[in-house]
């Protein structure tokens, strides 16, 4: 596929870049072609900027739902392949509507921003924090062992509860969050929908149990320990195994059926 001819020249005059430039400018980015910057480099920069914008929540600066979903999909792949422990947390600001009602939407926005920045500071750089919608946030914690999940969630809950958020001169408010979490089932190719549903169920439980608390789904114990295996085979008659091999010959009865093998491999 080597391209031997020179690539076609890009003439920026031919392109409608006004909207793209306006979007980038609005996000406080340099949207104009710089001196000495080639058209290709400039376009690449514009595209990169737009991609970044498309994944960001404008109010809080966190990842948006699109970003969250794509990270979640990728996590499922890695969990299915490696059995890595990945925790999904859904977090919801308690009684957010009453903040809006009492202090106005500007105050509501300030609370969202303060909580968002707090969440971003509570986690490791490898974690993904996103605004899932409204006053709901999501955090994906790769490589998070079940032992630590609760500690992380508890730290987040306490840190948010300790915030004093200025919403007007001489007026600070405090807020709490409820957290629900679920681990991706290890070694299993699950779906993002099901995973979110499971975390959401836990969030619902945290809410209905009085808010300002954490509920985590108990991770499934899928592996079979050496101790279990020992007991499983320890007392089994080894003659059974020998007889089985002798009776079935080199190939078990189904092995010759290629379709069965292919399907069940």
């Amino acid at each position: 596929m080597a391209n031997l001819t020179a690539p076609p020249r890009i003439d920026l005059q031919d392109l409608q870049l006004d909207d793209a430039r306006a979007l980038l400018k609005h996000d406080a980015r340099n949207s104009e072609q710089e001196a000495g910057e080639s058209p290709t480099d400039y376009l690449q920069r514009v595209i990169d900027g737009l991609c970044e914008l498309s994944l960001k929540d404008p109010l809080t600066g966190l990842g948006n739902r699109r970003h969250f979903c794509s990270v979640l999909e990728r996590s499922i792949e890695s969990v299915a392949r490696s059995g890595e422990s990945v925790l999904l947390l859904l977090l919801d600001i308690d009684h957010f509507k009453s903040i809006n009602d009492k202090h106005g939407h500007m105050a509501g926005d300030q609370v969202l921003q303060a909580v968002a920045s707090c969440l971003a500071h509570c986690v490791r750089p490898m974690d993904t924090v996103a605004r899932y919608g409204g006053e709901e946030f999501a955090i994906i914690l790769p490589n998070c062992r079940p032992l630590f999940g609760r500690a992380v969630a508890e730290r987040i809950r306490q840190t948010v509860a300790s915030l004093s958020i200025p919403v007007a001169p001489l007026q600070n408010i405090q807020t709490t969050i409820s957290i629900g979490g679920a681990y991706a089932p290890e070694w299993v190719r699950s779906t993002a929908d099901l995973w979110i549903e499971r975390a959401d169920l836990q969030l619902y439980r945290a809410k209905s149990n009085g808010r300002d608390q954490i509920r985590l789904e108990q991770p499934q114990e899928l592996s079979v320990s050496a101790e279990e295996k020992g007991l499983l085979f320890g007392n089994l008659d080894m003659n059974e195994m020998v007889a089985l091999e002798a009776a079935s010959g080199d190939t078990p009865p189904n092995a010759a059926d290629k379709a069965t093998n292919r399907v069940n491999a």
Partner: peptide, 23 residues
């Protein structure tokens, strides 16, 4: 399935049951 000896399934099921009860 593919049991090589009569009664082996019973023993295997019993064994599985014991491990489940314990773990």
């Amino acid at each position: 399935n593919q049991s090589a000896r009569p009664g082996s399934g019973q023993a295997i099921t019993h064994q599985l049951q014991q491990v489940l009860d314990r773990f």
